[in-house]
Design a protein around this nucleic acid. Structure first.
Lengths: 320, 320
DNA sequence: TTCGCATTATTAGTTTTACTTATAATTATA
DNA sequence: TATAATTATAAGTAAAACTAATAATGCGAA
């Protein structure tokens, strides 16, 4: 059960193969020739077969040696990778940092986040298209980090840190009628302005409505949240949105009214997602900055917009 | 430069994560709780950060711990794989052994090889189609071993052991004329019976002819060597072949005459090819058996057929 | 709070392993 | 056959991995 292999002797053997002689391997590793000889002999004893044919000079690898060398040097490569992933010097500038963000986040928190982290990378590439914020972009290494609500990260081998949580709510045009209507009444009165189902956001909203058995008439379907909110603002109907989305579209949307949805609140969670080979300090630093920037620059504006949301927006609990 | 990682402490950490507590990990590894505690503390010191958050109970992994755990358990998996590739108990039967062979080998040496190795596997799958003897079949793991002349193994990460080497020669129908003709005269007198270019063998012959600037008329092209030799035997032309191919087609081909080719002899090398993760003892045992079977059962027949070939057929030097 | 329980940390001593120095043995080459 | 280069072996030392025993910590219950 206990494995006989240890990295030190594997490293010594690989050095011996690569340097062609044990003596040179010893030099490279800062050891005596004797140590190398003993380490390789021990390896051979452990695996029960010769790795090196010493009956000829220069010594040649046996078949066992050849196969083992391939696997071993591959293994050492992975060890180096794992080591690097836990100690990267963050005082040095990264040459390039590629990060994807859902567009509502990119337009609201994004600038503050980049400003705060400016010193960690010489060059930034911030992408906010739908394609660049799907887990696929991360898997295909088009981006290194991602702030997204796509929660399919748990199906893959990725690190995901919760950054921000915000409720969905109902957005309607301002009424001139003095009496307040409830969310339900509004939903009956006017048509739904829909998001395109090609976005994760749109599918999330659809799922919510289906779950509630709400099948409102929908004559309008648009593929950017700006356009959706502009329609609402023009009095053409209502929609479902989250604070960041509304914040982003403030200019184009003008005046809007926000109503809480009844029942258990549907929330959207934004995650910082990264490959698990990514350096940990770096992940943590980005996560911290993203949380801070959101709290500092957006939460106050959100609460001004809809005070009843107090306690519903914020940072979700850490999962690990 | 020298890496701080060692497999033992990685193993201990992984056990601790998987068993949830250090005490249980100690039990699983047959250690004291103290050893586990110390090993993990040492790891944390080496990488300069906490892996486990002990301020809460049950203890939770930190982010660093989470990322490290993923990489670490992956690494351990690869270590086990590497270990297994060098110690497989050949006294136990393999459940299934899939081996591809070029058809001339399968038909001549094949049966003797299988007979000799019968005890190593419970079930055999011997494949000799063109597709099953190309390196691709090995890369796609449709077969575990392969005896082939396809030499593209050096482009991939494969083990290749030379098994047998044999010269190409000219095959012509028996003449009734008492005077001996030279190979060149024969090639001028009669048409070439060609192998289909879809086989590796056919392409090899084509390359040879092109290199020699030989562009003989070829009216016949056939896709099995049996058919080619049957044509030759029927007096329709000449072809180029190797001993094993002729041996294989003896029955269908009847009487044939073999002439050496002039100039540097073109040889075909047969290799035993396998993934380098394959067990070494197994590779070596198959290679040895294949060589023996060829020498014992085919070389004598070849030399009876063409005594001048003495010294040109045999086992090439070992490369490692 | 205070106690008991479960877990982890620390200390000191022991065993094992990794390494060095010095010397012997092996192989290739002149 | 000597000699140059390389590898192996023996004996001793330093470092590490581990154990046993005990102390410290966090949690839940009275």
């Amino acid at each position: 059960m206990k494995s006989w292999m240890n990295l030190r002797s594997v490293e010594i053997f690989v050095a011996a193969v690569e340097e062609d002689t044990m003596s040179r391997a010893a030099e490279r590793l800062g050891l005596t020739q004797s140590a190398v000889s003993q380490a390789i002999a021990a390896l051979e004893r452990a695996m029960g077969g010769q790795l090196i044919d010493r009956a000829v000079r220069p010594a040649k690898l046996t078949l066992l040696g050849t196969t083992f060398y391939k696997g071993a040097s591959d293994l050492l490569g992975r060890v180096r990778e794992l080591e690097q992933s836990v100690d990267l010097d963050l005082n040095k500038l990264l040459p390039l940092l590629r990060i994807g963000m859902v567009d509502s986040f990119a337009a609201t928190v994004g600038p503050h986040l980049v400003k705060q982290l400016d010193t960690i990378a010489a060059q930034w590439s911030v992408m906010s298209g739908v394609n660049e914020t799907s887990i696929r972009a991360l898997m295909e290494r088009r981006v290194d980090f991602m702030i997204t609500s796509d929660n399919s990260h748990n199906q893959f081998d990725l690190i995901a840190i919760p950054i921000f949580e915000e409720p969905f709510f109902l957005v309607a045009p301002p009424t001139d009628a003095p009496e307040e209507k409830t969310a339900e009444e509004l939903m009956m009165d006017m048509p739904l302005i829909r998001y395109s189902r090609s976005s994760f956001f749109g599918r999330q909203v659809d799922a919510y409505l289906r779950e509630r058995a709400l099948a409102p008439q929908h004559r309008y379907e648009l593929d950017t949240s700006d356009a959706v909110l502009a329609m609402v603002s023009a009095g053409l109907g209502w929609t479902i949105a989250t604070p960041l989305v509304v914040l982003k579209s403030m200019q184009s949307a003008g005046n809007l009214r926000c109503y809480p949805l009844n029942g258990a609140p549907l929330k959207r969670k934004l995650w910082l997602v990264a490959q698990h080979t990514e350096n940990v300090d770096l992940i943590e630093r980005i996560a911290t900055a993203a949380r801070q920037a959101t709290i500092q620059h957006c939460v106050p504006r959100i609460l001004r917009l809809a005070p009843w949301m107090q306690g519903q927006v914020g940072i979700p609990d850490s999962p690990y």
